[in-house]
């Protein structure tokens, strides 16, 4: 199969799989919650998009069955307030991309994390930006979309407790899970 055609097929499969999950979960939503607001409006079954917040990893037939595990992938670090991939992060990501290309059976979730210096809400968005930036870099480096899901953890799960630059630098990261 032509590489472009293969990638298109994988993408279509991924979209179909996500759609299927979305549909399947709609019926499993709990019954009517209590009334909302000071009007007669009532929040009943939330009616869309309950896909659980993560990208579903579809099965990719015919992948390379390597022996690498997620533990072999390097954690990527970021500068303050930044979600750009700098020089040393690029080298680490190139290595991760090579490993993922050689092990297409390996499925990973990229978790974006932040240090404690932003607000809760902003850091949840920034963590997603970091995870997405890592994903986009890997896709550009030839990794198939079906291998990668993304997730933000904001500043809720620091790798290191501490309130100095040494701790902050270790917490501004994207981990592979």
């Amino acid at each position: 199969m032509h590489p472009t055609l293969l990638r298109t097929t994988v993408l279509v499969t991924a979209v179909l799989a996500m759609f299927a999950v979305g549909c399947a979960k709609k019926g499993a939503v709990p019954a009517t919650p209590p009334p909302a607001g000071n009007t007669t409006t009532t929040p009943t079954t939330p009616n869309s998009g309950n896909t659980g917040g993560t990208t579903t990893n579809p099965t990719t037939p015919g992948g390379t069955q390597g022996t690498a595990t997620v533990a072999d992938l390097k954690t990527i670090f970021f500068a303050l307030d930044s979600y750009s991939i700098d020089g040393s992060a690029q080298a680490d990501l190139d290595a991760n991309a090579k490993l993922l290309r050689a092990n297409t059976n390996l499925r990973v979730t990229i978790e974006g994390h932040c240090d404690e210096r932003g607000t809760v809400e902003y850091n949840l968005a920034l963590g997603q930006k970091r995870a997405d930036a890592v994903r986009d870099y890997l896709l550009n480096a030839g990794v198939t979309a079906g291998q990668i899901a993304t997730l933000t953890k904001g500043k809720e799960f620091p790798a290191v407790d501490g309130h100095d630059e040494a701790a902050w630098a270790k917490n501004r990261r994207a981990e592979f899970k």
Partner: peptide, 26 residues
């Protein structure tokens, strides 16, 4: 998975999913 928006009544304490779309829900 990732962050989702939930709603509960402090009386019943039973949470219901309000938005669990792809990616961020905050």
């Amino acid at each position: 998975g990732g962050p989702q928006i939930w709603v509960l009544s402090p009386e019943t304490r039973k949470p219901f999913l309000m938005s669990g779309r792809q990616g961020l829900n905050t």
